[in-house]
């Protein structure tokens, strides 16, 4: 869907994007991750043609971005808001028309969304009379109303209350199933593990790692194993990270350089094993690892 080739953006002396290459596959839910100031928003603004790259090119469906693509993108910026004095209905229609929808088309779609998200009675209200949660729903509707093929959410859940967060997560999943490609940009990496299938990690304007989330997590597995045993375990001479008691039995995670088969044999001698798995590292742990040690070479 989106392919960035050697994209560079510089503000004064500050390099926001240092010749990055990214590939966001069609139909994916893609997590664009990185700490604040990594360059995520700079890249998003380039995709939205708010700014242009100093060099490099962004391909949208294999063609360089062109003004007409704006109508195929739905963007929820991190700094978002609505005209406070304007009525909700008018505002939704105005923003939809700016995206190229006709008046009647915009109206019928908006009404549909307002019913779906149970906000029919907002239509005649002014934005300043809405609660924060209500305004967030309106903002979401304006982002998706023109049925964009690409949805970009910049820090979507900051400021959303838990109920709306859930509601919107589900709506996003539904839109993705209907064919939309979704990009999430966030510095809160734990929040995307459950929803994203692809990720790209950016730091200091450079791409650290990119690909299928599962592949990346597998690639960064580091010999951490979780066990469940019937009785309290004994791990002679092993590095225990965590112990717990759950309804399935006693659990523990340990770290070991040994091969899994050898490890099982060793542990089975001392304990009655109920379960064993190698633990996938968390994205945030991978990120910290990469920042400290650099990306892990593919052949390791």
């Amino acid at each position: 869907m989106i392919r960035a080739k050697d994209v560079r953006k510089q503000y004064g002396n500050k390099v926001a994007l240092a010749n990055i290459n990214l590939n966001i596959p069609s139909g994916s839910i893609y997590g664009l991750l990185g700490p604040n100031g990594a360059g995520k928003t700079s890249f998003i603004r380039i995709m939205n043609q708010i700014t242009a790259p100093d060099s490099g090119v962004v391909l949208f469906d294999n063609e360089p971005l062109k003004p007409a693509d704006i109508g195929r993108i739905g963007y929820l910026p991190e700094e978002r808001g609505l005209y406070k004095k304007m009525k909700v209905g008018e505002q939704v229609l105005y923003l939809a028309k700016l995206k190229g929808l006709s008046s009647s088309e915009a109206k019928s779609r908006a009404k549909e969304w307002f019913v779906r998200l149970e906000m029919e009675d907002f239509w005649e209200k002014k934005v300043e009379d809405l609660s924060k949660g209500m305004a967030q729903k309106v903002q979401f509707v304006t982002t998706v109303l023109h049925k964009p093929a690409l949805l970009i959410f910049d820090e979507p859940f900051t400021g959303f209350d838990p109920i709306n967060t859930n509601l919107i997560k589900n709506e996003i999943k539904r839109l993705n199933q209907e064919g939309a490609t979704v990009i999430f940009s966030t510095h809160r990496m734990e929040s995307v593990e459950e929803i994203c299938d692809h990720i790209g990690l950016i730091n200091n304007g450079k791409v650290m790692v990119e690909g299928l989330l599962l592949d990346i997590r597998k690639h960064y597995m580091n010999g951490t194993y979780a066990f469940t045993t019937k009785e309290q375990q004994t791990f002679s001479g092993m590095d225990v990270l965590h112990r717990d008691l759950q309804h399935t039995g006693h659990t523990a995670t340990i770290k070991s350089e040994a091969y899994p088969s050898a490890l099982i044999q060793k542990l089975a001698k001392e304990n009655q094993l109920l379960g064993f798995e190698e633990v996938l590292p968390r994205v945030s742990d991978i990120f910290i690892d990469i920042v400290n040690n650099g990306p892990k070479p593919l052949n390791s």
């Binding site: 963007y75 910026p77 978002r80 808001g81 609505l82």
Partner: peptide, 15 residues
């Protein structure tokens, strides 16, 4: 007003 209400980025992603 457009800046403080933070709507401006929504708009300039369209125009």
């Amino acid at each position: 007003e457009e800046k403080t209400s933070r709507i401006v980025e929504v708009i300039i992603s369209s125009v």
